[in-house]
Design a protein around this nucleic acid. Sequence first.
DNA 1: TTGGAGCGGGGTCTACGAAT
DNA 2: ATTCGTAGACCCCGCTCCAA
Length: 334
Amino acid sequence: MYQNLTTFAHSTIADGGNSLDSRGNAASQLWYACRAIDKIGSGRVQFAIADLAEALGVSIATIRRYLKHGMRLKFFRNARIANGIVTLFYASTVQVCIANGFSNLGAVTEVAVSELKNLKAITTQAEVQKLQQASFHKARKGQKRPLPTPDELIPSSVKSQPCKRSGASGQVVQMGKRFLFVSPDFIPFGGSQKTTAQNLGRSARTIVRRLSNRNRSKKGLPILERRQLAVVCTPSDTQRIDALRLSGDRTLKHVFSAALGAIVPKCNIYGQYLELRGCRWTRKRLTAAIKKSRNSRNQEIASGGLIISRTFLQSSESLDNRLPNGFRLPATIC
DNA sequence: TTGGAGCGGGGTCTACGAAT
DNA sequence: ATTCGTAGACCCCGCTCCAA
């Protein structure tokens, strides 16, 4: 019933990083499902709990748990269940980010309700693509000649013959099983798994697992075409590197290839499969909300709230005994 | 609602690939 | 040894499901 409905998923919210525990990660699936069902974006959805459980491929009890955790993490403002029908008021993207301490949306891509069970794998892929795209644009900036695009370098249909666009900066020298050897004038770009891990608050190993084609196959996700960029050094650079190596210098980042000379390994280049969304308006609203939140916190500190809370923290006395009647500490300090 | 079994995700460690 | 992505092994923790 709901399987084909789609919504925009954000890598930071879908994953949660250090801000959300795994329960929050699971609850975000229900939140995204609600956003998909509520096509007009009213903030209120009504659905049969059994139908949504079927769409997400989980039990009814699990949906109830998602609701409970979602309420705790402020994904939802209000929920009513009567005769198996749920009426749910869900929070906006900006509210969810503010409540859970997300300062940005990360990569945004469209996801169907039936794919929400693979939310983390999909948004991780989107995050890598976003980094690669950003790196590509940075590398292209200021170049007189165009750079070969990721799709031209990693064509999914013709694996052994990457495009060598005439007039492009740098060219593909050789396509290996793992490496994509490129000429010295090629401007390397790409998103590393390490940076992806940092952005999502996960370990690099976790990101590797999520991008692993073996794991993706198990989940029924399409295979990711990829190659690791390897920039071939010029003959003079190769000679210099060889000389340094002979002198015992071990600081150089290079490997050697008999046929191609010295090689500097770079990031992976991935085929572009997901369509990334800008969501400029939401990003703008989030930035404004964060700014507003910071200003109000500064005002609270300036008005003495912080001094009182410090006094309280340094003392074993009850707060009730130390504060005037009816006085409440600001929520941001509590 | 609770307890138990099964499963999967995540972290850490380690080895491998590519070539010499 | 060199780089960095990949992947297996192991362990721990928590989620999910089912039965009571």
